[in-house]
């Protein structure tokens, strides 16, 4: 019997410990979590480089309200992004979509880095081969 009480007490202690950690997650609805993620993905189109999560411009307020309306209308995240893209163009997304026109934007920096690394490598290689020659012919 004593072991039964022990188990009950242990279970209560565990429950009391994890309950505070469970609460914050359940306090936020799925709509809220999805809306917050989308707010960070959509650009406030009248602000300089701010998402609608960061801006309190009137247009950003309207856009946030519309995101919530669309979520409550059971649209998927992709559909909501599309909704804004057909109306405001690609630039409404904080991350521009990958397509032929934006290839340079996505891969240009990598290309420039690789070229720099290549040049550095070749210069070092050249220096080393010269050093080698120097050792051969003192």
């Amino acid at each position: 019997m004593a072991s039964f009480y022990r188990i009950v007490v242990a279970a209560l202690v565990v429950l009391a410990t994890i309950t505070p950690f469970l609460q914050p997650a359940s306090a936020q609805s799925v709509t809220e979590i999805r809306a917050k993620a989308l707010f960070n993905e959509l650009r406030c189109v009248v602000c300089a480089g701010q998402s609608i999560a960061e801006s309190n411009a009137e247009l950003a307020q309207d856009m946030r309200a519309q995101v919530v309306v669309l979520i409550e209308d059971n649209r998927s995240d992709a559909e909501i992004r599309d909704w804004f893209m057909t109306r405001y163009g690609d630039a409404v997304l904080m991350n521009p979509p990958l397509k032929p026109l934006t290839l340079a934007l996505w891969f240009g920096p990598v290309l420039i880095f690789l070229m720099g690394a290549g040049i550095t490598g070749l210069v070092l290689l050249r220096g080393r081969s010269r050093l080698g020659e120097g050792e051969k012919n003192p």
Binding site: V45, L59, D62, Q66, G89
Partner: peptide, 9 residues
């Protein structure tokens, strides 16, 4: 309508 037309201002 403003959002539907992609209005910025």
């Amino acid at each position: 309508n403003a959002l539907n037309f992609g209005l910025t201002g």
